[in-house]
């Protein structure tokens, strides 16, 4: 937290994939870790299966709630068809986490891809794992918790062996 640098993360995918849930969990975890956090996305029409993206920014002090184009440190993409248009968010040297960053066949449920990719992302971030797990537990219903905790672990494993 000594660095004044803001970490910029963009989540992208299609309506219904859990893009907003994934970014909510990261934002809450970063918040719990003591950072200034801003998170922004557009609701509304996006609920009908269209493209959805969500920005999370954290650091010592964050001003704009939106990640400026070409300044994302990490872009997490949940849908292959969103890969191309999502690259523009990335800064030079930034990290793109594509849907195939985890083995889809190994996931306990296809709906948990958002949490699995969050697991991959988490291996790059300074946000402690315990805060991420706590935010997952706070944001998901009990009946899908086990599946998602497993997906998160699979993602972390994939991230560490990258």
């Amino acid at each position: 937290m000594t660095s004044s640098k803001v970490t910029n993360v963009v989540f992208a995918g299609l309506g219904g994939q859990g893009v907003l849930k994934g970014s909510d969990i990261l934002a809450e975890a970063a918040f719990a870790a003591g950072y200034d956090v801003k998170k922004s996305e557009l609701h509304g029409m996006s609920q009908r299966g269209g493209s959805v993206s969500s920005d999370v920014r954290f650091g010592r002090e964050v001003f704009s709630p939106m990640v400026p184009a070409g300044e994302a440190d990490y872009v997490v993409v949940l849908a292959p068809e969103e890969l191309e248009s999502s690259r523009r968010h990335l800064r030079p040297g930034g990290v793109l986490i594509a849907p195939d960053a985890v083995d889809a066949a190994a996931l306990p449920h296809s709906r948990s891809l958002n949490i699995a990719l969050l697991g991959v992302l988490s291996t790059y971030l300074v946000v402690p794992e315990e805060h991420l797990l706590a935010a997952i537990r706070a944001n998901l219903p009990a009946k899908v918790l086990e599946v998602n905790e497993k997906a998160f672990a699979i993602g972390r494993q994939a991230g560490k062996t990258k």
């Binding site: 909510d24 934002a27 918040f31 200034d36 956090v37 801003k38 998170k39 922004s40 996305e41 557009l42 609701h43 964050v62 709630p65 939106m66």
Partner: peptide, 8 residues
């Protein structure tokens, strides 16, 4: 952006 952004 003010309505839907989450901030502290």
């Amino acid at each position: 952006r003010v309505c839907h952004s989450k901030t502290v």
